[in-house]
Amino acid sequence: MKKILIFSLVLSLILVLAACGKGSANSANGQTTLVVGASAVPHAEILKEAAPLLKKKGINLKVKVFNDYVLPNQALASKQLDANYFQHIPFLDLYNKQHHTDLVSAGKIHIEPFGIYSKKYKNVSDIKDGATVQISNNKSEQGRILLLLQSKGLVKIKPGVDGVSATLNDIDNFKHLKFLQPIDPALLPKAYLNNSADLFAINTNFALQANLDPGKDALILEGASSPYANIIAVRKGDENKKAIKELVDVLHSKTIQDFINKKYKGAVLPVSE
């Protein structure tokens, strides 16, 4: 009876330890596994470059690729991921507000200069009154697009309105630009190739996936001073975890910054803060 009791206690302990080892961020054989959701380009590419550096620090990085802007935050909030890497803070703030979540930034990593593309116009000065503009249905990007158009004198955001949160109702549309029905951001490159509008506001990651070169193909391109840096997002409190801090430190390293500069040639700009 005593032996059976001891065996039962040992078995229970084994089961408890096994249960503690489950989950996405767990340690085994001295290695911590970190599961990070990311857009395919450039985020997943950057993470894969960082993986060997993290391996040396005892962190096994697993990258899960997403092709939309909703599921990565859903997966993070439901603890299917330890972090995600695809969004900027204005998008995250809007998501938290709409979904009553508490996701936070663990660090800014890079900027993808947003672009306005056109097959019809080669110069901004040629854009005529009434030109059609195709934008995405990502509401957090609307202010960003309007700021970009304003930078070239195509619209004017009304006084007293914060440009980041500006909407189509907050502009003086003196060139009578016609903003078409917003579509999914991933569909913008296809719309551009089909030439279904005069101007197209396209996220750089989707432009790169469509083999567009923002530096050469964009009619208007955002500068490095943009407030829309892409971040590592985590659940509140996890930003202080050692593995997350190591991830951010590696992504801020000279090795990764050099990789970003060399591979994307200005289409993606590293951030070191």
Rank of each mutant, 00 (worst) to 15 (best):
F206Q: 09
A210Y: 06
C20W: 14
A243M: 05
I109H: 07
L5Y: 08
P270S: 11
I116Q: 05
L15E: 05
K64R: 13
P72L: 08
H99L: 07
A201L: 00
N211C: 15
K62R: 09
F7V: 15
I111F: 05
N60W: 04
A131C: 14
P159N: 09
L212E: 09
N138K: 07
T132G: 05
G115L: 11
D126H: 12
S140W: 00
L269V: 14
L34T: 03
R235Y: 05
T204I: 06
S226C: 00
L187K: 13
S118W: 10
P214F: 09
L149F: 02
D170H: 06
L17N: 11
S39V: 11
L247T: 04
K2Y: 13
K122L: 15
S196W: 02
D198T: 08
N169H: 14
I14D: 08
L147F: 01
D162M: 13
L212P: 09
I244V: 12
A131K: 08
D170A: 06
K263F: 05
P227L: 04
I109W: 02
T132E: 09
G160H: 11
D93C: 08
A186F: 05
K236E: 07
L54V: 02
L199C: 07
S225W: 02
Q150F: 00
F174Y: 08
A40K: 13
V70S: 13
L47W: 08
I111D: 00
K262C: 06
D162H: 08
D93Y: 08
K62E: 15
T33I: 11
A40L: 14
N261Y: 08
Y228F: 09
L146T: 03
A243Y: 06
I157R: 00
A166H: 03
G130R: 03
S165R: 07
P72R: 07
I260M: 11
I135V: 12
T255G: 03
I244L: 02
I4S: 11
G266N: 04
K122T: 15
T255K: 12
P72D: 10
D249I: 03
E112M: 13
Y95M: 05
H43N: 14
N194G: 08
D129S: 12
K119P: 10
G153F: 02
V65W: 12
L92F: 06
N84Y: 10
Q87Y: 15
H99P: 10
L154T: 00
S226I: 00
A44C: 13
N194V: 06
I89E: 15
L147G: 07
Q74C: 06
A51Q: 13
A218G: 10
I260H: 07
G115A: 11
N195Q: 15
F66S: 11
A51P: 03
D238C: 02
Q181M: 15
H43V: 07
L269C: 05
I6Y: 09
E222W: 03
I244M: 01
V70H: 10
I220P: 00
L180C: 04
L177S: 01
S226D: 03
P90K: 00
L168F: 10
A224S: 12
I116C: 06
N67A: 12
K139G: 09
Q209M: 15
D126F: 12
P227N: 02
I157F: 01
L71H: 11
K190D: 13
K119C: 13
L76K: 01
L247R: 00
D102G: 09
S27Y: 01
I14R: 02
K64D: 12
V133I: 04
